[in-house]
Design a protein around this nucleic acid. Sequence first.
DNA 1: CATAAGCGTGATATAACATAACAGCCTCGG
DNA 2: CCGAGGCTGTTATGTTATATCACGCTTATG
Lengths: 144, 144
Amino acid sequence: MNATHHHSGKHPAPKLSPNQSKILGCLREAGEPMSAYAILDHVRNDGIAHPPTVYRALNDLMKKGMVHRLESRSAFIACGDGACDGRFAFAICRACDKVVEIHLSKGDQTRLLGLAPAEIVPEQVTLEITGLCEACAPVQAAPV
Amino acid sequence: MNATHHHSGKHPAPKLSPNQSKILGCLREAGEPMSAYAILDHVRNDGIAHPPTVYRALNDLMKKGMVHRLESRSAFIACGDGACDGRFAFAICRACDKVVEIHLSKGDQTRLLGLAPAEIVPEQVTLEITGLCEACAPVQAAPV
DNA sequence: CATAAGCGTGATATAACATAACAGCCTCGG
DNA sequence: CCGAGGCTGTTATGTTATATCACGCTTATG
C-alpha cells in the first residue's frame, strides 16, 4: 500500500512521509470517515502510539488535499480523488454514515462564494449535506 | 400579539424554560459565537454550574431554531432572527471570529439541496464560509 | 391525602476530541 | 565538528460532549 508513486497527471506530487502513508492507507482501506482515535487504534500495529502523531499526519494530509475533515462529525476521510483543490462538499447519510464526496463545478464554487456578504471576503467553503441514503430510507422516519 | 394558535407567521411560540432563557440571553448579549464552556463560565452567576445543563439547553434551543452551532468551530450562536427554519449559512472571519448569518433564498436552498447525489436524499445543509472581514483584511496575509 | 407520572433540573463521572511543549534522531551544508 | 531543519516519539494537559442517576415540583387520579 505504498502510494509514493501514484500515477502522474492531475494531482501534484504527493511526497508523503512514512507516517502520512500509513495513515492515508488506513483511511483509504476504510473508505469511510474515521475519528482520529479510531485511526490511532488501527495503526498501533504500525508503531504509531500517540494522538499527536496521528493529528500531525492528518493535518499534513489535509494541507495536501488528500484527506478531508467532516466538521459535522469530527471525522476524517480520504479524498476520493487522490487529492483535490479544496473546493468540495459532502453528502452524509445520517443513519449509516455513508459519505459521498461532491465535486463542485466552477460555477457551483462561484455561486457558493458569492453567498458571502460584502463585508467578508470568502476564502474557504465548508458544505455538508445530511440526509438519508437509498438503503436507509425505507427503515427510517424523518426527524426534522 | 399572542398567536399561540398554530405556528402562524415566521416564528413558532418560544416557551422557554428558565435555563434556556438564561443561556439564550447570554448568547444574545455576546452577539458572537461562544463555546459551551464559555457560556458555562458566563452563567455561573445565574446558578448554572455543570456542562450537561448547558448542553441540554443548547440542544433544546437548537431544536427550536433559536441557536445554531458553528460546526467548523464547535461554537454556538444565537439566531440573528429570533428563530429560523434551519436553512441558513454563516460567513466567519478567520481573524476576528466575526460571524454574519446568511439567509438563503428559496432558490439558494434549492440549488444547495440539488448538489446532493441521487443516492442520498438531502434533509439538512451545513454551509460555513470562512474568509477575512473588512477590518481584518489590511493586517492579515492569506494562508491558503 | 397518597401516589404515581412527567418534566426540568442538579450533580458526578467519564468519554471523546485535540494540542502544547519538549526531547531524540536523522541528514545536510558549512 | 557543529548547527539548522525535518520528522518522529512522548508526556501531559486542555477542550468538547455525554451517560447516568438523583432530586424536587406540578398535575392527574382515586
